[in-house]
Structure formats: C-alpha cells, structure tokens
C-alpha cells in the first residue's frame, strides 16, 4: 500500500511519504527506549491501545482536512462540526439502540449540509477557505452555546461498543477510521473526482482552462471533510457516551489536523500530497503524546515540544519536496491525465 500511492507522481510522493514513515519509525524507536527507562513496555497491549485510540479522532478529521488542503482550501470549522455531530446524534439516540441508525444518519446529514455550504461559499462566493470556514466555525459555535447547555443526549450501549471494543490492541474505531481512509484513497486514485481535485488544487486556472469544472472537486472536498469530522464526533459520542458542545474545541482539532496533514507531506498550497502520509503524521503525534505522558512531562512543556517537533519534522523533507519549480512542471501532467480521462 505504501509504495505506489499516487500513480502519476512516482518518485516525489514516494519519497515524501517514505520520509514521513521513517520519521514515524524514528519516533517509535525513541519512544520505546524512553518508555523502557521508565520501567514500562512500549509494546504492551495497554500502551499500544492508548496510542491507537489517540489516532482515531484526529485521524478522521485529518483525512478530511487532507482532501480540503489538496483542493487548495482549508477547513477551520472541523472542531465545531465534530461537537455538533456528537450532540445531534446523541440527542436523537437518547439512549435507545433503535435510534442508532437515525442518529448516525441525521448527524452525518447535518455535517454534509455544513460542508456543502462551506464548499459553496468558497467556490461561488469566492471567499477564501480560511475565512469561510473560520466564519462557519463561529456560526456553529454560537449556535452550540445558545442551544446546548453542557452535555446532551446519550449513546446506547450498542453504540458505545464501537468506542470500547478492540481486536487485540486495535480499537474498532481505528479500523473504521482506516476504512474511511482507504475509501478516500481509492476516491483520489481511481475516480475522476480525485484527479480533478489534484488538478484544481494544483492550479485552478489551468484546470479550468483544461475543461475541469473547478467547483465540484472543492465542494466535494469540503463536504467530505465535514462528514469525516462528523464521524469523529460520532466516535467521541461512543467514547464519552454523551454529546458535548465543547468536545471538538477541546482537542484543538483545527490546527492539529492541518499540522498532521502537512507533517504527512501534503503541500499546504494544495495539489500535491496524499492520505497515507497524513495517517503517518497522525501516528507521529499519537506516539509523541503518549511518550510525553509516560515521561510525565509538564503539561506546558508538552505544547512546546509539539511545536518544535512539528517544525523539525516538516523541515526534514520540506526543503526538497516543496520545490516550486518541480511542482509546476508536474502539474500540467496531472491535467493532461485528467484530460485523457475526460475523453
């Protein structure tokens, strides 16, 4: 799965994703050694479960964020969408197993509508994704503060099993997240929408002139991003057993998901990168967080270390990968393939 992630961009992508996973291996080795100095076993089931659980929520959101960034936009509304999703689903389920499906569908539908609006504001009103989604985040946050006083609703036992069940050390929720990631990867690699997404993110003008409808991929990316943020909200609902109006902002998922995407080698300007790298980035954060907790690091220093690691890790490969000229030479080829496929 790792070797040929994006057909057309062989060496470059392989290299950047490869480096992401090398960094991950390095962090794991470091963590294993440092954990051992605390008299603990890094590879014990409990520890691995903690780390993997830590990848679930951020994983969903970062996969969605990857799509939006690939399309040349940003999504800062994800924390609020996540909270809203947990509240809507929790409210509808109200502790009844029979309502699980309705709750899930309703929550994801609400998220899809939000994503659709984000996408339309970005494309039709020509508002930069940063502002469109920042504004959407504010709008939702006001709605949440007005309408929900603290936690709300309740997940029935059947739904909470998703958050609580594991195969060996691997939580089911992480498998679902990986399943979504695989679908997104397939979408990016196998469908016209995926090709167009890269093309539009790479150069909107060129893509437009090449006959690509530039609106559709951007709207789709925003829609999927919100839906995936909604999935994260559902996962949180199943873990917490109640919906919460602040659960999304608590995790700081907006900036952390963007950091994970870039850590995974995706070009922030769009058009270049992949989901596999993002998953690597998410895993790096999870291992690091676990390590810092095992070492009982001061909570303030945790943030400082996170900051340094983000910059250092990206610096390792950013220099070679974001070489503008290289990227530009490559873009027409993407568009060419798009055109080929369009015929």
């Amino acid at each position: 799965m790792s070797a040929v992630e994006q057909g057309g961009r062989r060496s470059v992508t392989l290299t950047s994703t490869g480096i992401v996973y090398l960094v991950l291996v390095f962090v794991v080795v470091l963590a294993a050694i440092l954990t051992a100095t605390q008299g603990r076993n890094f590879f014990s089931t409990g520890n691995l479960t903690t780390i993997l659980t830590g990848t679930g929520v951020l994983g969903f959101i970062a996969v969605g964020q990857t799509l939006v960034i690939l399309a040349g936009s940003l999504d800062l509304s994800v924390p609020y969408v996540t909270s809203l999703s947990s509240l809507v689903a929790g409210g509808i389920m109200a502790g009844q197993s029979s309502n699980v499906l309705a709750g899930v569908v309703a929550a994801l539908a609400v998220c899809a509508v939000i994503g659709l609006v984000n996408g339309l504001v970005v494309t039709l009103l020509d508002v930069h994704g940063f502002i469109a989604t920042l504004g959407m985040g504010l709008i939702i946050s006001g709605y949440l503060a007005t309408n929900y006083k603290g936690s709300h609703g309740e997940a029935p036992r059947s739904f909470r099993l998703i958050g609580a069940t594991r195969i060996g050390p691997v939580p089911i929720s992480v498998l679902i997240m990986l399943g979504c990631a695989v679908l997104v990867i397939l979408m990016l690699r196998r469908t016209r929408l995926g090709m167009h997404l890269y093309a539009v993110g790479g150069n909107r003008e060129v893509a437009r002139m090449s006959g690509v409808r530039t609106t559709t991929p951007v709207v789709a990316a925003h829609l999927l991003s919100s839906v995936l943020a909604g999935m994260a909200g559902l996962l949180l609902l199943s873990r917490l057993s109640v919906g919460s109006p602040t659960i999304g902002s608590q995790g700081g998922y907006d900036l952390m998901s963007i950091a994970a995407v870039v850590l995974g080698g995706t070009l922030l300007a769009g058009g270049k990168g992949n989901v596999l790298g993002t998953l690597g980035g998410v895993a790096i954060f999870a291992v690091l967080d676990n390590l810092m907790s095992v070492m009982s690091l001061n909570a303030f220093l945790k943030d400082a270390v996170r900051g340094l690691v983000i910059v250092a890790a990206v610096a390792v490969y950013a220099r070679r990968d974001t070489h503008r000229r290289l990227a530009r030479f490559e873009r027409p080829s993407v568009t060419d393939r798009v055109l080929e496929e369009a015929r």
């Binding site: 520890n47 873990r239 109640v242 919460s244």
Partner: peptide, 30 residues
C-alpha cells in the same frame, strides 16, 4: 480534553500499577 482524559484513565487501569486513583474530571457526564 475529555477524550484524552478517558484514555489516561484507561492507561492507568491497564499499565499504571496503581493502588489508588485520584481523578479531577474535565467534565461531568463525559
């Protein structure tokens, strides 16, 4: 972060070798 705190408690249960738990919850229901 509620989600992190849940993981923290689970970690303590499985790995901590604790004799007693002290918990200052981040939020009530969650």
């Amino acid at each position: 972060d509620d989600n992190t705190q849940l993981s923290d408690i689970d970690y303590f249960i499985s790995e901590g070798g604790c004799d007693a738990f002290v918990i200052s919850p981040n939020s009530t229901a969650a």
